[in-house]
């Protein structure tokens, strides 16, 4: 199988120069009493795109949702181990969930704009925790839409319903909405799985341009996509136990071209059984 890599991935800086934005230490995650992932330790480096790949049911989405504690909306969850966000334990009792999620934003699998105008969608996060004046809010909305490469397409229709946009535009709107609250990290859970190839390409370009502003972790089914957009890759898999595990983590070129684990090699070359 042929992979094309991102330029910056080919000469990826050695990890010692990088600052971990998130440091995951021996994480195990339970939905109720069901163990979903275990013993995951990896870093998500600041200013880099980290791809999380693996077969269905390997716990990669679960892992991602554990990083901003959004999984707690889905019921009773339990966590062992640690996730540190610039040195602070996000599962500590003192953590204000809403502040945490503002700093670690998320884009979901299916575009999920609110049933309101494009403007209100982008302004939502800002309005939730401050009372911005109109001018500064306008600026925030515009710059978020520009960052999400959507401004030119919607600037004349800001008051139109977001539900009238195409799927790809809706997803970029969701990215703009997440960017508007100026997060440090953006988690993307298969953001292109509901999109056509052209919309997918736009999102990939967008990920690349955002890399300079923030840290991105992206779960994807598409290995080509992982190789194109990321500098680091984590391969998750599962065995008979049905518990997801991190098999290998490393620079994207290394994972795709010279993986140290045979399971990783088999998976990236499409020989996964």
């Amino acid at each position: 199988m042929q992979f094309s890599f991102h330029d910056s991935a080919i000469n990826a800086s050695s990890t010692s120069d990088l600052i971990p934005a998130l440091r995951v230490k021996d994480l195990a995650f339970y939905y109720g009493s069901q163990k979903a992932i275990e013993s995951v330790s990896m870093d998500i480096y600041q200013g880099q795109v980290t791809a999380i790949i693996g077969p269905s049911g390997c716990g990669k989405s679960t892992f991602l949702k554990a990083l901003n504690r959004i999984s707690e909306l889905e019921g009773v969850v339990r966590v062992e181990g640690q996730v540190e966000f610039f040195g602070q334990d996000i599962y500590s009792r003192q953590v204000n969930l809403n502040r945490l999620r503002r700093q670690i934003g998320m884009v979901f699998q299916k575009p999920n704009p609110f049933p309101s105008s494009i403007y209100d969608n982008v302004a939502y996060g800002v309005r939730v925790f401050s009372r911005p004046n109109r001018v500064s809010l306008d600026e925030t909305v515009e710059s978020a839409l520009r960052s999400a490469a959507l401004w030119n397409e919607v600037k004349d229709n800001l008051s139109k319903s977001a539900l009238g946009l195409s799927g790809g535009q809706q997803q970029r709107l969701c990215i703009a909405r997440a960017l508007a609250v100026k997060p440090k990290i953006l988690l993307m859970d298969e953001p292109c799985s509901a999109l056509d190839p052209i919309a997918t390409m736009k999102i990939e370009e967008l990920i690349d341009s955002l890399r300079h502003e923030l840290t991105i972790a992206i779960v994807t089914h598409n290995m080509q996509q992982a190789s194109r957009v990321s500098q680091y890759t984590a391969f998750f898999s599962t065995d008979e136990s049905r518990i997801g595990q991190l098999v290998e983590f490393g620079a994207t070129t290394q994972i795709f071209m010279a993986a140290s684990q045979s399971r990783t090699r088999d998976y990236v070359q499409g020989r996964f059984g």
């Binding site: 934003g105 979901f108 609110f114 969701c174």
Partner: peptide, 26 residues
């Protein structure tokens, strides 16, 4: 849809803010 609740939560809204700003209007 549950997705709207997660979208709102992921932007830092509390459950009540989600209720008043997203759920009731929808």
């Amino acid at each position: 849809p549950k997705e709207l609740r997660s979208a709102s939560a992921s932007l830092g809204a509390t459950p009540w803010e989600t209720t008043f700003r997203v759920l009731l209007p929808s």
